[in-house]
Design a binder for these strands. Structure first.
Length: 506
RNA sequence: GCGGCCGUGGUCCAGCCUGGCAAGAUAUUGGCCUUCCAAGCCAACGACCCGGGUUCAAAUCCCGGCGGCCGCACCA
């Protein structure tokens, strides 16, 4: 932890102004769940759409929306039912809990004890008379934690189902349909955003570790014999900070600064596709307001990796509140999942090469946690200026596009302001109209929720149909004709023009 | 799940030790005022996490639960 202050400040604003707050508040709350308010819902949607721009639309990738509840056979085949559970033992004396398989491995030198199952673990604990490694106390019977949420489908004698802990399985289950819709050509990708659930043992840090959260995932299918990415040249010159697997193993803390092209060349990143998505990822996160020098990619050590992964790089950002924080995982899932579902379902997942050979495609996956990103965006944009809190959100993400404010509420200014509001609403903008309190107070309110522009109707407006436009970040103003507002504001919000081009200086 | 600290209007916080009308700031709403950055005045709204116990009396003391933060464990 570096500074908990900014975390408190950001969550306080989030709660007060309606970005997000803890769920089930009126019943005392339950950790690991969050509810988004008006501004949070809009901001979240804007981030999601930005992700779609960077990862889906330009590449022409395919989207998908699959169920949250899945039949148990899905997770039997995928390996999640085996890997999403832990056998825990608790000490009767000091109360500490431990992973049973780790204790057995330490004592006996056996490997992969987890895979032997609950009965074997129970027997091994007894056989080797394993006691608490901290205090030597006796251990309770091992308890199994399944971190997937289980449910029953149907009324009586129903089938067991599980809530998905990742969206990825939806893409693998529907690989054949996707492949057909991609006109049976590799490479192609299926992308999905949606809720996933993980029954975390102890969720912490608010938005950073939830039991129910939104994930944005993409599975890129390719032929391992044709591993090149047609767009790699767009990002190969991009410099990234890497902590490679070797560096992690040696405890090296200073990241390697290297271009993505060099990183692939040197074998630090196993595939071009993975490197491509890491490059897009860096650009996406920069677009959300995190400077490149606060971003890095950290490799997982083999024991840290998921059961399906041959290489994983976490994309981390440096938060003032929590230090380096994972916001995305870039995993090389190989043919693990399609192979598993071919085995589980009996459906052929192979693809035919021009030379007549068949193979199971390999998969590279960038996976983002949207709720974390939303927190990162808020914290990164937080500023304090002249005793005011300001969210300097990227203007394309701000939940409200523009505030419309009459300078005072008399002499017909309110009525004129209402006309301007209608005009901007007709233009499709999200508008906040505010005539309460002094003009300064209204600017402050507007800044606090990150609204990039404020249009003010003053006495000159009544004379010549012009208004002032105020910039959230510099507090400077320009004057412009009302009739020109819709087009200019839209272009400004898209990032096509700068503030100074919105009108003549005041 | 274990340990430490904590939980009071929308938000931030005082009061708790030593039981006795729950204070302040800010926000919000209405009014007056107001020609550009949380101005001023008047008014209104609004709180002791939940449950039990002790007591004439509990925000305060005790027990249990829930929630938050930190440490340990966990985070596939």
């Amino acid at each position: 932890m570096v500074s908990i202050n900014i975390y408190d400040k950001v969550t306080e604003i989030a709660k007060r102004r309606g970005f997000f707050w803890p769920s089930f508040e009126i019943y005392g709350g339950l950790s690991g769940f969050v509810t988004y308010g008006n501004l949070g819902t809009k901001l979240k949607r804007n981030i999601e759409n930005a992700w779609r721009e960077f990862f889906v639309r330009r590449q022409g990738f395919l989207e998908l929306e699959a169920p949250i509840i899945n039949a148990s056979r899905v997770f039997e085949a995928s390996g999640h039912l085996d890997h999403f559970k832990e056998h825990m033992v608790e000490c009767t004396r000091c109360g500490r809990s431990f992973r049973a398989d780790h204790l057995i491995e330490e004592k006996t030198g056996l490997e992969n004890v987890e895979a032997m199952g609950g009965d074997a673990i129970r027997e091994l604990l007894a056989e080797h008379e394993i006691r608490c490694p901290r205090c030597g106390g006796a251990l309770k019977e091992p308890v199994m934690f399944l971190t997937m949420f289980q449910t029953t489908i149907g009324a009586t004698g129903g089938e067991v189902g599980y809530a998905r802990p990742e969206a990825a399985q939806g893409m693998f289950l529907n690989f054949r349909r996707g492949f057909q819709q991609a006109r049976e050509k590799l490479p192609f990708a299926l992308a999905q955003t949606g809720k996933v659930l993980r029954n975390e043992i102890s969720p912490r840090r608010g938005m950073l570790r939830l039991r129910e959260f939104t994930i944005m995932e993409l599975e890129l299918f390719f032929d391992p014999q044709e591993p090149s990415c047609p767009w790699f040249n767009e990002v190969s010159g991009e410099e990234v900070s890497l902590l490679t697997e070797e560096m992690e193993a040696e405890g090296e803390k200073t990241p390697l600064k290297v271009s993505l092209g060099e990183a692939v060349e040197a074998g630090h990143i196993l595939t071009e596709w993975q490197a491509y998505f890491m490059g897009v990822s860096k650009r996406f996160i920069s677009h959300l307001g995190v400077p490149p020098d606060r971003q890095r990619f950290r490799a997982h050590l083999p024991e840290e990796r998921s059961h399906y992964s041959a290489q994983t790089y976490d994309h981390e950002v440096l938060l003032e509140s929590w230090g380096w924080t994972e916001i995305a995982g870039h995993a090389y899932r190989t043919d693990y999942d399609l192979k598993a579902h071919q085995r589980g379902s009996g459906v052929d997942m192979t693809v035919l090469r021009p030379d007549g050979t068949r193979f199971i495609p390999h998969v590279v996956e960038p996976s983002f946690g949207l709720d974390r990103l939303l927190y990162v965006v808020l914290e990164s944009s937080y500023q304090r200026r002249k005793k005011r809190d300001i969210l300097a959100l990227p203007r394309s993400l701000a939940p409200i596009n523009v505030s419309v404010l009459p300078l005072v509420t008399k002499d017909g200014l309110s009525e004129k302001a209402a006309e301007v509001r209608e005009l901007l609403l007709d233009a499709g903008l999200v508008v906040a109209y505010d005539e309460s309190g002094s003009i300064g107070r209204r600017y402050a309110r507007s800044d606090e929720v990150g609204t990039p522009l404020a249009v003010t109707i003053d006495y000159d407006t009544l004379e010549n149909d012009t208004v002032t436009i105020r910039d959230r970040d510099s507090w400077s103003q320009v004057r412009q004709r009302i009739a020109d507002l819709p087009g200019l504001l839209r272009r400004y919000l898209k990032g096509e023009i700068e503030f100074s081009e919105l009108g003549s200086p005041v």
